[in-house]
Design a protein around this nucleic acid. Structure first.
Lengths: 183, 183
DNA sequence: CATATCTTTCAGCAATCGTTGAAACAAGGG
DNA sequence: CCCTTGTTTCAACGATTGCTGAAAGATATG
C-alpha cells in the first residue's frame, strides 16, 4: 500500500496530455482568482477537482498539484467555507474524498453575495462615519472650514450612495440568478 | 517657502475632524481595492483627491496620507494608467496638481472592461489550449484514458463557455452604462 | 549654462504572505 | 488500549510585495 493510485478505482494515466491539460486549466483559474483577491491555490485545487470524474482523495490532489498535504488541507478549508468544495465520505472508506461544486455561476454569485457584500457594508459604515465627522465641521467658526466641510460632506454622501448602489446591484444579480437551474 | 500649504489657495485646517474623516474614507476605499486585487494606496490616494475641492499638489497628498513622495509618484502612475486621476497644470504654476476622476461608475466599469476583460481572455485561451490537449487523448489506445479524456473535454468546454459568458456579460454592462451621464 | 524646484526611478530594507514539514489531533481496527 | 491511517494546525522559513530615501531626470528661471 504505497502507490498514489489504489484499490477503489483505476487511476488515470500517471503523466500524460490529460495531466498537462489539467495543469494548464488549474493555473489559469488560479491566476484569475489571484486577480480577484483570492488565493491562487483555491483556484488550482478547485479546478483539479472539477476536472475529475470522481471525488479525489487528499493524496491524489496533492500529487496532481505538487503541494503539501498541509497546504491542501488549509486550501480545502477555504474552499469549503465558500461552498466551493464538498467532502464526500465513501461507506467502507477510511479517508475522505473531495468534490468540486459544479454549479459555477451559483458558486461565483454566492461568493459575490457574501464576500463583496460584507466588504461593501463595511465601506458604507466607514463612509457614514466619515460623513458624521465632516458634518460636525459644518458649524465651525471659520467659514473656510465650513466650506470645506460642505464639499467633503457632499462627496462622502456620494460615496455612500455609490456603495449602497453597488450592494443593490449585487442583490439584484444574486437574486436574479439564484432561482435558476444549472450552474 | 517650506510649509505644506502655500500661496495659491488657503489650505484647509491642518489637523481636524475633516482630516480624520478623510483618513477613514481613504482607508475604507483602500481596503476595498485590496480585496479586489489592487494596491491599497491606489484607493487611499484617489480618495484624498476625490474629497478635495481643488486639485492637490504631490506634497499635500503625501502629507495627508503620510507616505513618501516616491510611493505617491508610483501610485499616481498606476492611477493615471487606469484613468482614475488626471494631472492638472495651473498656468503660472511650477508644480503639477492632481485631480480625481469623479465619475465613479464610469471609472469602475472602464477598469472592469479592460483588466477583467484581459484576464478572462487569457483564461479562455488557456482553457482552449487545455481542451486541445484533452481531445488528443480521445483516441488513446486505453479505453480508460479515452473515457477520462471525454469527461475532461466536456468540463473544459464548460469552463470555456463560462468564461466567454462572463466576457459577454462584462461587455453588456460596460456598453450599457458607457452611454450615460453622471459617474 | 547654472540653479532651483519638482517628479520619477530604483536599490535596499521591512512587512506581508505562502508553503513546507513536523507535531498534534481524530478515528477506526486489532 | 495501542497502533495505524488520515487530517488539521502551526512554527519556521522563503518568496513576494510594499515602502522609503536618495540619486537621477525633468523643466523652468535667472
Amino acid at each position: 500500500m504505497s502507490g498514489p493510485g489504489n484499490a477503489a478505482a483505476p487511476l488515470g494515466p500517471p503523466t500524460s496530455a490529460l495531466r498537462r491539460a489539467e495543469g494548464r486549466a488549474a493555473d489559469a483559474v488560479g491566476a484569475l482568482l489571484v486577480l480577484w483577491g483570492f488565493k491562487r491555490q483555491m483556484g488550482r485545487v478547485w479546478t483539479v477537482l472539477y476536472l475529475s470524474e470522481r471525488p479525489l482523495t487528499a493524496a491524489e490532489a496533492c500529487e496532481r498539484l505538487s503541494i503539501s498535504t498541509g497546504l491542501l488541507s488549509m486550501t480545502l478549508a477555504d474552499l469549503r467555507s465558500w461552498g466551493a468544495v464538498r467532502t464526500v465520505t465513501v461507506p467502507g472508506e477510511r479517508r475522505e474524498r473531495y468534490q468540486a461544486e459544479v454549479q459555477v455561476w451559483r458558486m461565483v454569485l454566492r461568493v459575490l453575495g457574501s464576500r463583496e457584500r460584507g466588504a461593501l457594508d463595511e465601506a458604507v459604515r466607514a463612509f457614514e462615519g466619515a460623513l458624521e465627522e465632516a458634518r460636525a465641521s459644518l458649524v465651525d467658526p471659520d467659514p473656510a472650514v465650513r466650506a470645506a466641510a460642505r464639499f467633503r460632506a457632499e462627496r462622502l454622501a456620494r460615496l455612500v450612495a455609490h456603495a449602497r448602489g453597488a450592494v443593490g446591484l449585487l442583490r439584484i444579480l444574486t437574486e436574479a440568478i439564484a432561482g435558476r437551474r444549472r450552474g
